[in-house]
Design a protein around this nucleic acid. Structure first.
Lengths: 198, 198
DNA sequence: GTCTATAGGTGGATAGAC
DNA sequence: GTCTATCCACCTATAGAC
């Protein structure tokens, strides 16, 4: 295993993500990506069938990174600690991978482009199922009330997503720096968990 | 005062809003608006300086609409009922004015497009201050705990925004139709309020 | 105020040479 | 795999006639 030059396909993906993050799906252009990679627009079609296929591939990559963050929460010793850690890691992913986060959760491209390129729900839903599992084991351990784990997970997801996305949009800038915001984030998350306790 | 034929400028605004609602700011085109109004694209420039000016006028309307929704919560009799109603109306606004919502809360375009047309922060922030006031009176009435009302309001805002935006992106489609989702929304909001109770 | 005509720009996608 | 050349669609904006 040696260090290799990134191949063209990889470079296309990297620059495609960059372009998408700068202007959103609206201004995403295959030509601009090709320009940055340093090849002609036509050459892109050797690597991807269409503009949408390229955009879809960008989304898939983000999902994998995201899942990697969440899995780290499994290092905690108790169900509740794992759930809370998952929340913290969710925020970390959002702050450390703003571009990916926007692609995945703050645009309709993920649901559309990914679904179009590869109608595989297993690409997106494992992350949500992971959260449902964290909720389930918290219910089993008595940390959360009995109830539809999917609905509870959706509520928790919405909460952490709301905090993360508003932060990324600059709407919660008054909360201070990232460390201060992480503290506020944890507090708010805990308030919700109290409301979901038995 | 008599009933008059809407003038061209008014008709432009109406159709611009229609086009905007159909495809969002991304696919908004001055030509398409002109087409629907039945005049040439060039004629639009007699009424608006540019495409952005026209779009800005439409967006301003969105902000006013949003505030209108929130204000209806004041019809409730108790502080807690007003806060809960504000939450419900927030969701209603998001679902009934999807593109307005996206522009205001799910993109950085709001600060740019609208800000360019009218750099008045008082257009957006009154809505958050409105929520802070709802929290304050709930603390006074004993429905919510003592604490920084701004932080609590931010947490509540994030929660309703998270639910609303995920719904709009199609990520919470499994929750059923809008009525079913509104029910789930209310439940989740109540859980958070329980966590924020004294 | 509205038109036509036009300038000048974006973009996606394909064909065929190499 | 990559290129150039090309086609077609769409767009914003302006100029000048009426």
């Amino acid at each position: 295993m040696t260090l290799e030059e990134p191949n063209t396909r990889t470079r296309l993906l990297a620059h495609a993500r960059e372009v998408y993050l700068e202007g959103g799906a609206a201004h995403f252009s295959l030509r601009e990506v090709a320009r940055r990679v340093g090849i002609s627009a036509a050459a892109v079609y050797r690597h991807f069938d269409s503009k949408d296929a390229l955009l879809g591939a960008v989304c898939e990559e983000g999902f994998r990174t995201f899942l990697g963050y969440l899995l780290r929460s499994l290092g905690e010793r108790t169900p509740l600690a794992r759930l809370r850690a998952a929340g913290d890691l969710y925020l970390r992913f959002a702050l450390e991978n703003e571009h990916d986060y926007r692609v995945i959760f703050m645009s309709s491209v993920a649901a559309i482009a990914v679904g179009a390129a590869k109608a595989d729900p297993a690409v997106t839903s494992p992350t949500f199922l992971f959260l449902v599992d964290r909720v389930r084991e918290c219910t089993a351990s008595g940390d959360l009330r009995e109830g539809d784990p999917t609905a509870m997970a959706a509520g928790i997801w919405a909460h952490v997503h709301g905090l993360s996305s508003l932060r990324l949009c600059g709407h919660l800038a008054s909360a201070g720096d990232d460390a201060a915001f992480a503290f506020f984030f944890r507090q708010s998350m805990d308030a919700l968990l109290v409301g979901l306790a038995p």
